[in-house]
């Protein structure tokens, strides 16, 4: 199964139909970025045939642009609307991944989204998990959608 393709399909679908913003997928990332400054990450765990975590990492500017477009209003600061929106985007992308996986005969169940934000934080996952990340370029900056997973036979 092509996980980068799964990320691109699920993310493009959400951005084309729900967020209404152009998000151009780039080349699959080769190096992990784990430290973030003035950013928000939407995180959602999933389990089943494949166990893992989906994470979308957005610089504050990108998070505000996404929220503004999703809600149809001006967003000038990182508030609860932005945190809710980034969690919800993670949820929607995970829903798209679930459909993609199901098409490939892998059933997963989703947990609930959490938004992590702050001036300075690092994220960390199991060392032995597989990792696939795809950057998306928006007018406001670059968002990275990452999947970490284990268990695929």
């Amino acid at each position: 199964m092509d996980f980068a393709q799964a990320i691109i399909e699920a993310t493009s679908d959400v951005f084309n139909t729900m967020v209404m913003l152009e998000a151009a997928p780039g080349m699959q990332a080769t190096e992990k970025t784990t430290a973030f400054n003035d950013a928000i990450s939407g995180i959602l765990g999933f389990s089943g045939d494949i166990k893992g975590m989906l994470r979308i990492n957005c610089p504050n500017q990108v998070a505000m642009a996404i929220t503004g477009s999703l809600l149809g209003m001006e967003v000038e600061e990182i508030d609860d609307d932005v945190r809710d929106a980034i969690g919800e985007i993670a949820n929607m992308i995970a829903g798209g991944l679930k459909i993609y996986f199901t098409r490939h005969n892998h059933i997963i169940e989703l947990s609930i989204p959490t938004a992590i934000g702050g001036q300075s934080y690092t994220v960390h996952s199991l060392a032995n998990a597989e990792w696939v990340a795809v950057p998306f370029t928006l007018a406001a900056g670059v968002m990275v959608v990452e999947l970490q997973f284990v268990g695929l036979k």
Partner: peptide, 21 residues
Amino acid sequence: IQLSIPSAVCGDSYSLDYQPQ
């Protein structure tokens, strides 16, 4: 109930938010 894989976050200053469940 099935578990996902664990993850960790650390830093000088961060917050965790989720929608009311």
